[in-house]
Design a protein around this nucleic acid. Structure first.
Length: 468
RNA sequence: UCUUCAGUAGCUCAGUUGGUUAGAGCACCUGACUGUUAAUCAGGGGGUCCUAGGUUCAAGUCCUAGCUGAAGAGCCA
């Protein structure tokens, strides 16, 4: 086969189809035709679009064409010409075809017809070859890039916080233990507990549930930082919105107060969504057509409208008025409750029909590190609530006062021995600062319109599932 | 973890108040067709009805337990 430099399909489609000889390599999506001519829809992952390969049967031996089935990988040399057919502007008249790898149709699980997402989850090693997952994964990449670009352009520094952590008080849920101890012969202390003195780190360690506390250390030196890495929660959560391993973005900014934190969160989300609209048109158009007919409309709406900013106390009033007006909730509403999903959904989807930033929650239902308001009852928390997916961002202004923070830690029974380094930020050169956490896969749920979080990460980790 | 629903061909599903040999579409194989668009047309092969018990003359269908998946809830991002 003649050696010609390969052109990706995404680049090919920008060329003038004037008969230039090109090479494409990719995976066969379908082959159809008659005894005179065959049409191969070829995809190489560079775009959701296929290139049509036209094969004149007279020019090729049947033994060459037969193994070219759905899923096979081939390399094609041929002339890039304007298409005679209706469905595409250009196509390649094949002159040479090389088979890289066949895909026995009797056992290859992907067909040219559609599959259920549940079935595709069982073949996570092959599902990136489908239109839906390749589109989702390209959008995922674009969002990861846009996140780095957003922060870099604004002078934030990317801080790498540890994945293995010794603090068990990050306060965000159950943790996975990390150990090299022999689980069949666990050493015990004289009191009967596990003796971690001989463990790898000499103490109990876990996988991180949040990089926030370390992020604060960075912000108090570099001014503005963000983290973007994997986090782990050993919660037995079986929902379309939870993963045991997921990626989180956590910006932290010195001197920002709660309003500036809200400004940052809103601007950041709108930037990312606009970036997707500008750079992932083909993939979003496909997802809109295939899975969620209101996707583009919804993305456009979020970019164009101001988020509602609402104190928790006002939110409770609205919910109480709704009840007075005859609306039925499963859970009761009163000041001090943690809002249930149905309450958040009412505010976002029924009352405002717009993203909502809820602020100033009762301190009892929020984490120890949030800055206490002067009313003595609430803290400067902010949750960004989105239609369809609920809480997409959780954040706050942090308590910068050493004594107030220490008191709160004691009140909540958090072991002080693990917190000394965190408290040092308030002992030495403390300053107001704020930050938030954005769940990367929750963002992707919203941007792609997919309904289940297991379908926006290549290899989902959920309770009872760590295949691949 | 709780509640609800589901599990029948490779995939998506139908299968009546329990009643002959369990069906369809797609996929696959064979053939037809001079340019198709998830091509079309004709024919063919393909089943541990999730598993284990139970009720019954008779179970894909009813009951019990388990396994798996999904949706809702809790927790949260």
């Amino acid at each position: 086969m003649e050696q010609i430099k390969r052109t990706k399909i995404v680049d090919l489609l920008k060329l003038d189809p004037a008969g230039e000889i090109v090479n494409v390599k990719g995976w066969v999506r379908s082959k159809r035709g008659n005894k005179n001519v065959s049409f191969i829809a070829l995809n190489d992952g560079s775009t959701i679009k296929n290139i049509q390969i036209v094969v004149d049967s007279a020019s090729f031996d049947e033994s060459v064409l037969k193994p070219i089935t759905t899923g096979a990988c081939i390399s094609v040399n041929g002339a890039l010409v304007a298409s005679q057919g209706q469905g595409q502007t250009m196509e390649i008249n094949a002159s040479e075809i090389q088979l890289y790898g066949e895909a026995d149709p009797n056992v290859y699980p992907l067909q040219k017809k559609g599959h259920s997402l549940e079935f595709l989850r069982e073949i996570a090693h092959l599902r990136p070859r489908t239109n839906t997952f390749s589109a989702v994964l390209r959008v995922r990449h674009a969002m990861a890039y846009a996140i780095h670009k957003y922060f870099n352009d604004r002078g934030f520094f990317y801080l790498h916080t540890p994945i293995v952590t010794a603090s068990d008080c990050e306060g965000a849920g159950e943790m996975f233990q990390v150990t090299t101890l022999d689980l069949n012969a666990i050493p015990k202390t004289t009191e009967g507990g596990v003796d971690f003195a001989n463990d790898f780190f000499g103490k109990a360690t876990s996988l991180t549930v949040s990089g926030q506390l370390e992020g604060e250390l960075g912000a108090m030196a570099l001014g503005a930082i963000y983290t973007f890495g994997p986090t782990f929660r050993a919660e037995n959560s079986n929902t379309p919105r939870h993963l045991a391993e997921f990626w989180m973005i956590e910006p932290e900014v010195a001197f920002n107060e709660i309003v500036e934190n809200m400004d940052l969160a809103e601007d950041f989300l709108k930037y990312l969504i606009q970036y997707a609209l500008d750079n992932c048109q083909d993939d979003l158009a496909f997802l809109n057509e295939m899975w969620d007919k209101e996707l583009l409309e919804r993305l456009d709406f979020v970019v164009k409208n101001k988020f509602i900013r609402l104190p928790y106390t006002e939110g409770i009033k609205i919910l109480e008025e709704a009840i007075a007006g005859g609306h039925k909730f499963e859970f009761p509403v009163s000041w001090g409750i943690d809002l249930q999903s149905e309450h958040e959904r009412y505010l976002v989807e029924k009352h405002f029909k717009c993203p909502v930033i809820l602020t100033d929650y009762p301190k009892e239902i929020k984490a120890f590190y949030m800055k206490q308001n002067d009313d003595g009852k609430t803290v400067r928390a902010m949750d960004v609530l989105f239609p369809k997916i609920g809480e997409i961002i959780g954040g706050s202004q942090r308590e910068e006062d050493y004594d107030k923070l220490k008191t709160r830690i004691e009140e909540m029974g958090i072991p002080m021995k693990d917190m000394w380094w965190y408290l040092d930020t308030r002992r030495f050169g403390s300053a107001p600062h704020s930050g938030f956490g954005l769940g990367f896969e929750r963002l992707l749920l919203f941007v792609t319109g997919m309904g289940n979080i297991r379908d926006v990460i290549p290899f989902p980790r959920t309770p009872n599932n760590a295949e691949y």
